[in-house]
Design a protein around this nucleic acid. Sequence first.
DNA 1: GTCTATATTTTGATAGAC
DNA 2: GTCTATCAAAATATAGAC
Lengths: 189, 189
Amino acid sequence: MRVETRKQEIIRVAATLFKDKGYSAVTMRDLAKAMGIKAASLYNHINSKQDILKDIIISLAEEFTAGMATIMASQVSSLDKLNQIIALHVNIAGRNTDEMASLNNDWMHLEEKLEYYLQLRENYEANFRSIIKQGIGTKEIIDLDPDTILFSILSTLRSLYLWIPDHEDYNPNQFAAELAEILLHGINK
Amino acid sequence: MRVETRKQEIIRVAATLFKDKGYSAVTMRDLAKAMGIKAASLYNHINSKQDILKDIIISLAEEFTAGMATIMASQVSSLDKLNQIIALHVNIAGRNTDEMASLNNDWMHLEEKLEYYLQLRENYEANFRSIIKQGIGTKEIIDLDPDTILFSILSTLRSLYLWIPDHEDYNPNQFAAELAEILLHGINK
DNA sequence: GTCTATATTTTGATAGAC
DNA sequence: GTCTATCAAAATATAGAC
């Protein structure tokens, strides 16, 4: 069975603090206090504050990249691909609400891994955009600016980490379906 | 004609820095360098770093509150009220792209004015939610969870400050109309 | 209105004992 | 694995000269 190492515990607790105040406003002493130890003791498990941020963000970004690769390879309609993307975000955000805050709000504080992160994000958005364009081509999607459509959907998906913790009783599959209904078919009756 | 005071200039420049790195990661020395003066000189115009953040956020939050009050008072359908809300966000975000970043990402660093800000936000969302519920009641809006609908639309509107600077050639009215099409009527053809 | 100089706190991180 | 003690740098802010 999976046992959480001390390092993993530190990263998990750090993510909860980063979510509330952001990376820059959380001190190593804050993190130590939340762990019930002294700040110096943290360094027996992690190399630096920066390394914690890197672990949180890069692992999540790579999970999104892997999920998108699977979706791109699937032989389904553009609309079904968008449904899969929505489910991907609901799934990952549901399992990593705290970490998603860092991915969304603190990526600019990455140092060595900043370029790599930006590459992953650019690639992800390019794939997303190509699906929308294909959908417009096949007349599955209305012929509006693909960037505006991408922006609108992605903005909502990126905010999922804020919605999910306030609705612990939600069913991920049902929620993803409801969200797809709103995002793809609109709210006007 | 309107002349910008030194204090207003400092707040404006601070907002551009806050947008890129967040309130906590911007130092008074960063701000001074961007202004072309020494950090100590800033204090001849402003009381504290915190006061700058307060000025940025509270004035914006009050502008949204005032806009919502006008919309609530108008005698139009729920769908038209939603259209007005979308236009309100496009309008304010278009004129305050940098400041919107602080409103969205740094409100938790407010000190004395935090409670007041939270009140304004809670009130704004309550009004927004009541419009959605009314629209569901009059069958203008599909009968899905009002909170999910609110979350979806508001997430996109809150991200407008990121979209607008990359599309300087956009026409606010046309963009608001296109956004309303996507948000209210969906993208599925 | 801006400067130099400085006070005071806080920060990330290391050394070495236990 | 955690502690105490400590360092060096960086932070917000003030005092007083010009």
